[in-house]
Amino acid sequence: MALLEVQHLKKYFATQKAVDDISLTIEKGSIFGLLGPNGAGKTTLIRMITGIFYPDEGTIRLDGKPFDPVNDVRDIGYMPEERGLYKKMKIGEQTLYLAQLKGLSKSEATRKIKEWFIKFEMESWWNKKVEDLSKGMQQKLQFVTTVLHEPKLIILDEPFSGLDPVNSNLIKDEIFNLSQKGATIIFSTHRMEQVEEICDHIVLVNKGKKILDGTVKAVKQDHKENLYSVGIDPMISLPEQQRPFDVVHSEAHRMIVRIHEGNKPNDVLQYLLQNGAAVNAFNEILPSLNDIFIKLVEGTPVTRQFQNINA
């Protein structure tokens, strides 16, 4: 069942169509990757889903009901890319304040904060101020404030920026953990290796439009270029005649081939064996999401902005 259904969402600003007719569905309990270059409209889309902006057109349904920005904030946890905390405020107090703003009672919020602080080994932070924390520690605290009220929908915009590998893994494990407990997670990023690792389903937006939608596996299949890696030892010279592939790249004991349209991997093997090649490895090369991303976005003027610059 879908937790979030977005239909024909539009938001136009004076100078650009920030979100131009985007529809998407996010299954309950899934980890959803929202990808796109800077300025593609991700943040505007998220701001509509979190109730910060009203859409010009289109509908948002949360958990089967029309989205109500005032009351549904309780069910949403949002960590924006541009994030921060009150620097001079004590950490315990601040976390309590943010949780109460989400609608938790004071006692409930206090209990949950203590649980999370113990889990993340942050007990000693209660009376410290945010300005006393390192950037990584602040990110951890920020994550806690986002998920503390146990929202059904968690939206994380670049959650790993500024984190070292140890804390990155800690947050990553927690994302899986929350997903297992039934939370739905929208994960917005430029970092494709993380998307491949974490997400079930992805959507790629560019210039306000959706240009890709599917599971990670399906997307890769759709964009594969019939590339195979073949290991041959010792390498021999192969006749050009009736060769069912082109050689894209070749090394001492390995080459990368692109199979011709209409041929199958078996045809390649047959050809190689007939020509007396000793094949010791044969596997398909699927494109990385990074490659797909670049291929789809390339050529549009915003491509050059495609880099992680928020760190």
Binding site: G51, V73, E82, R83, L85, Y86, L98, L101, K102, T145
Partner: peptide, 16 residues
């Protein structure tokens, strides 16, 4: 201060 601290967006995701 709220704007430059970047806490504004976090608050407006909870309140108007």
């Amino acid at each position: 201060e709220e704007k430059t601290n970047r806490i504004a967006e976090i608050i407006v995701s909870s309140v108007k």
